[in-house]
Design a protein around this nucleic acid. Structure first.
Lengths: 189, 189
DNA sequence: GCTTTAAGCTATTCAGATTAGCCAAGGAGA
DNA sequence: TCTCCTTGGCTAATCTGAATAGCTTAAAGC
C-alpha cells in the first residue's frame, strides 16, 4: 500500500473543495476519505475529526477571503474600494459556498481563536474601505457592522437561493453598493 | 402505557423549543423524543423524520415571524415602520435562534413550497415598509433585497456571536436603522 | 361491550464517527 | 547498503443516531 502523501493542509483543501460541491452539512469523513483515495480512519492521522476539519475549512476560507480582499483593494479608495470589496465577498461566497458556510458554522469550535484571528483580516479590509469615507470615529464601528451585515446577508441569501427571480440579482447588487456609497458619503464629516 | 397525546404540531413545537436551546445542528430525534417522554421511533408516527421535522420548524418560524411583523407594523409608516420591522426581526432571531436558523437550513427540502409561502408573508411586510418611502417602482425589488440582507445579516451575525465588543450592539443597530431611513428617504421620488 | 384505528414500544438494520492495534513505507544514520 | 524508528494507512470493533418492521394495546365510534 503506497502512501498517499497527505498532510493536514491537503486534507483540508480536499474537504473544502468537497464542501463547496455538496454543502458543508453533507460533508463526512467518509466522502473526504473517498475523494482522497483513502479509508476514513486514516484521516485521523492528519486531523482531529470532523469538528476539527470543519474548523480548518473555516480558517482556510477566512484566510483566502482576507487575501482576496486585500488584493482587490490595492490602490482603490472610496466608492471604488467599496465596490471592489463587496464584489469580492459576493464572488467568494458564490464560488465557495461550503467553505464560507463553515466560517459561521464552526464559530463555536474556535476556542483558540484561530478563526477569529483570520476573520479579523477581512474586518481590517472593511475598515479600510470605510476609512476612505472619513466618518466620525464613533460611527466607524457601526458602519463596519452594517457593511458586514449587508455583505454577509446578501451573500448567504443569494447562495441559499433565497432570492426569487434570480434574473436581476446583479442589478440589485449594484443598487445596494450605490445605496451604501451615497449614504456613507452623506455621513462623512 | 398511557398515550402522550402528541400530534405533528406539538412535536414540532417541542423540537423548535429544543432547537432554540441547543442549536438546530444538535437537534436529533432522540433528544426530541426524550423531551416529550417518548421513544424516538414513536415520533415517526407524527413526522416523517428529521428532515421533515426541520422543515416544519422552519415553516413554524417563518409563520411566527410573519405574524409578529404584521402585528408590529399595525398603524406605522415610514421610519417608524422600518424601525419596528427591524427590531422585530432582530428580537425574533435573538429569542429563537434555532428556529430561525432552520429557515435557511431547510430551504433545499422545500419541494412543495410551504416554506417559501410562509416566508413570503415576511417579505410582504418588508415591502409594506418600503411602500411608505415612495420609491421608484423599479427600485423596490432592490431595496427589498437590501432590507432583507441587512436584517438577515445583522441578526445572524449577532446570534452567532459574530460581533466583538457585544456592548454597544444596540447603538449599532439604531445607527443602521437610521442609515437606512436616511438613504431611503433620499431615494424617494 | 366490540371493533377498528392509531400511538407507543421493542428489536433490528444501517450509516457514519471514532478508537485500538497491526504492519509496512520510507527517511536517518551507521 | 542495511537497520531502526517514526509515521501513515489498514482492518476490526465500538458507539450513536436515523429509520423501518411488526407487535400490542389505548381510546374513539358504534
Amino acid at each position: 500500500m503506497p502512501r498517499a502523501g497527505l498532510d493536514p493542509a491537503s486534507v483540508t483543501e480536499a474537504a473544502a473543495a468537497l464542501a463547496d460541491e455538496i454543502g458543508i452539512s453533507q460533508l463526512s469523513m467518509s466522502v473526504v476519505a473517498e475523494r482522497l483515495g483513502v479509508k476514513a480512519p486514516s484521516l485521523y492521522k492528519h486531523v482531529d475529526g470532523l469538528a476539527d476539519l470543519s474548523h480548518r475549512i473555516a480558517v482556510l476560507a477566512a484566510t483566502e477571503l482576507g487575501d482576496e480582499l486585500r488584493d482587490a483593494m490595492q490602490g482603490r479608495a472610496g466608492r471604488d474600494a467599496l465596490a471592489a470589496a463587496a464584489q469580492t465577498v459576493r464572488d467568494y461566497v458564490k464560488q465557495h459556498p461550503g467553505r464560507y458556510a463553515a466560517t459561521f458554522v464552526a464559530r463555536p469550535a474556535d476556542a483558540e481563536g484561530t478563526l477569529t484571528l483570520a476573520l479579523d483580516r477581512t474586518l481590517a479590509s472593511f475598515a479600510a474601505v470605510l476609512r476612505g469615507y472619513g466618518l466620525e470615529p464613533s460611527d466607524e464601528i457601526h458602519a463596519l457592522r452594517m457593511l458586514r451585515s449587508v455583505l454577509h446577508g446578501f451573500g448567504t441569501l443569494e447562495a441559499s437561493d433565497g432570492f426569487q427571480m434570480a434574473a436581476d440579482v446583479e442589478a440589485s447588487f449594484a443598487w445596494v453598493v450605490e445605496f451604501l456609497d451615497r449614504g456613507l458619503r452623506a455621513s462623512s464629516l
